[in-house]
Amino acid sequence: MGFKLLSKLLVYLTASIMAIASPLAFSVDSSGEYPTVSEIPVGEVRLYQIADGVWSHIATQSFDGAVYPSNGLIVRDGDELLLIDTAWGAKNTAALLAEIEKQIGLPVTRAVSTHFHDDRVGGVDVLRAAGVATYASPSTRRLAEVEGNEIPTHSLEGLSSSGDAVRFGPVELFYPGAAHSTDNLIVYVPSASVLYGGCAIYELSRTSAGNVADADLAEWPTSIERIQQHYPEAQFVIPGHGLPGGLDLLKHTTNVVKAHTNRSVVE
């Protein structure tokens, strides 16, 4: 069995187990497998329904001669939608809004960016022009300005110390501490036991640490421990890039980060 097929099978099995364990909360999309990078042309966006009122959005972007996937989250909030992270750029984010209108038909009224990198804030200006209120932590807003990236308009308070959590509509926002970046936030959907790890969490097929220019490698494993301790009931975990899975993604990420750190020390 090929690795790609095995990865998709694991996603399907995880979703099936969740649907059985929580039949009222989960209505997993039966329309197909989780979209992969090879299936999404740059400039297009796919939506994948995880649970009743919960979707991931998947886009792709060219970077350094390669094409990478990027995940975000959409959560229903009454007759409105909360968006977590842009679709990595203005063109993708405009396509995301169009796809949401086509498939869901509810307005996106608020959006949260989970850290300051372009795959999370690139497209904020498109959201703002569409009347979406954009939010991020003060740290993310400051770092985005320093980096020359787009800056969300509103500040999220109460997320300055490791372990801080605040309720934001249908989700809980959690600051686990520094990891992929010093400002990275985690998003949890309690009604569906869905954990969105953003770039602080890796997919299972990833074996290298990737972009760690703004990471705190020493603190990252401790931050992941905080996530595990705060959300032990999480059933569906979405990484910032690639295929979702279960809580095993947290341990896998820790292993990859520690291996990278150990290699760096040896070198």
Rank of each mutant, 00 (worst) to 15 (best):
R110D: 02
G53E: 09
Y68P: 03
I74P: 01
A192Q: 13
L13W: 11
R120Q: 02
G72F: 04
L96T: 00
P221V: 13
R142S: 13
G122N: 15
S22D: 12
G105Y: 08
S113F: 07
E150A: 05
L204Q: 10
L195F: 07
I17K: 15
N211R: 09
S70W: 01
G210V: 05
V108W: 02
A66I: 12
K8T: 15
S155E: 14
D79C: 05
G32E: 09
K4A: 05
V194L: 09
G148H: 11
A129C: 00
I224M: 07
D183P: 00
K251E: 13
Y34Q: 08
G32I: 08
D216I: 08
Y202N: 05
N71I: 04
Y231N: 08
L156C: 03
V194E: 01
K8I: 13
A192T: 11
N71C: 03
S139I: 13
V237Q: 01
L195K: 01
E147N: 15
S205A: 09
I186W: 04
L173W: 01
D248E: 14
E99N: 12
A66Y: 15
Y12I: 11
A200S: 06
T36Y: 14
L156H: 05
E101A: 14
A234E: 03
M18H: 15
N211Q: 12
L195N: 00
T207E: 15
T261E: 13
S70H: 02
T153Q: 15
V126W: 08
A90K: 09
S27D: 11
I104G: 00
V187I: 09
I74Q: 01
E33I: 10
D79E: 12
R120N: 00
V67H: 15
L9F: 10
A144S: 10
L96P: 03
V256H: 02
I50T: 05
S208V: 13
V194D: 01
L247G: 10
L195P: 05
S137Y: 05
D85P: 00
F63Y: 11
Y196I: 03
D79H: 09
S7Y: 14
S193K: 15
V256T: 08
L96G: 00
R128P: 05
G72I: 01
G148K: 09
V171C: 00
D118A: 09
S137Q: 08
G246L: 03
G122K: 09
G65S: 10
D216R: 08
E172R: 02
K102Y: 09
T207K: 14
G72T: 02
E150W: 02
T109E: 06
S27P: 12
L106K: 10
A95K: 11
S181T: 15
Q228T: 15
G177D: 05
G177Q: 03
A129G: 11
A15I: 15
V108E: 01
D183T: 00
S160H: 13
L73H: 04
N71G: 02
E172K: 04
L195W: 01
D77S: 07
T60Y: 07
D52Y: 09
A87G: 02
I20W: 12
V108Q: 00
F168D: 01
A15C: 14
H180S: 02
S223V: 08
V28L: 09
T254C: 08
S38T: 10
V266I: 08
L81A: 06
A25Y: 11
A130D: 06
N184I: 05
D79N: 11
F26Q: 15
S22E: 14
T36E: 14
S30H: 11
L5V: 15
E80M: 07
L250P: 06
M1R: 06
S22L: 09
Y34F: 14
W88M: 02
I104T: 03
A25M: 12
S160Q: 13
G245F: 00
L247S: 14
N262H: 10
I58D: 03
L195S: 00
F236Q: 11
I151E: 04
A215C: 06
I100N: 01
F26Y: 11
N211M: 14
E172V: 06
D164R: 08
E44S: 14
G105D: 08
V132D: 02
N92A: 07
I20F: 08
A200H: 05
L9V: 14
M1I: 06
A200Y: 06
N184R: 01
I84R: 00
E33G: 11
R206V: 15
R206K: 15
V189D: 03
T182G: 11
P244M: 08
D85W: 00
V126M: 07
I40P: 12
Y135M: 02
L9Y: 13
Y48I: 15
W220Y: 09
F63E: 10
R128H: 13
E203C: 07
N211Y: 15
S137G: 05
S22R: 13
I100R: 00
P107H: 09
A234R: 02
G72S: 03
Y135R: 00
I151A: 07
E225N: 08
S31Q: 09
S16P: 13
A95M: 11
T14D: 11
L127I: 03
A130V: 10
N211F: 12
S27F: 11
Y34E: 08
E33C: 07
F174M: 13
W55E: 01
P232L: 09
Q229Y: 09
V187R: 02
G197N: 05
D29P: 10
R141H: 07
S161D: 13
I17N: 10
W55A: 02
S264L: 12
L185C: 03
R46T: 07
H252P: 01
M18S: 15
T134Y: 00
L185E: 02
Y196H: 06
A209Y: 06
A259G: 14
C199K: 02
S70Y: 04
S22V: 11
V132N: 00
I201D: 04
H57I: 00
V266F: 13
V265Y: 11
A136F: 02
I100M: 05
G242Y: 02
I186T: 12
L5Q: 15
A25L: 10
L156Q: 02
G242H: 05
S191V: 09
S264E: 13
L83R: 01
P23L: 11
A51G: 09
Y196V: 02
V67K: 15
E80H: 08
E99Q: 14
A130F: 11
V166A: 08
D164Y: 06
L83T: 00
K91N: 15
P35H: 07
D125V: 06
L9D: 13
A165E: 12
W220R: 04
E101R: 13
L204W: 09
P41A: 12
E80L: 03
A178R: 12
L13H: 13
V112H: 05
S70F: 04
V45S: 06
S31H: 08
A192C: 05
E203G: 08
G65D: 15
F236R: 10
H115V: 00
V187W: 01
R206D: 15
R167W: 12
I201R: 03
V146E: 14
V67F: 15
Y188I: 01
T134H: 02
F168S: 03
A179V: 06
Q49S: 10
I104N: 04
G169T: 03
P190I: 06
A129K: 10
T153D: 10
T134P: 01
K91R: 15
E157R: 11
S113M: 07
T60L: 09
H154P: 04
L82H: 02
A19L: 15
V194C: 01
G89Q: 00
S193I: 06
S208C: 06
E203A: 08
P244L: 06
Q49I: 08
H252G: 02
Q49L: 10
G197S: 04
K102C: 06
P152S: 05
I227V: 12
V75K: 02
K251C: 07
G123S: 04
L159H: 06
D85T: 00
G32M: 08
T222D: 13
G148A: 07
F236A: 10
L10Q: 15
S22T: 11
P35F: 08
G105T: 14
D118Q: 09
S181I: 01
G2I: 07
Y34M: 11
H252I: 01
H154T: 10
V265C: 04
L6G: 12
L5F: 15
T222H: 14
V257A: 05
S31C: 07
A136I: 03
I20P: 07
N184V: 01
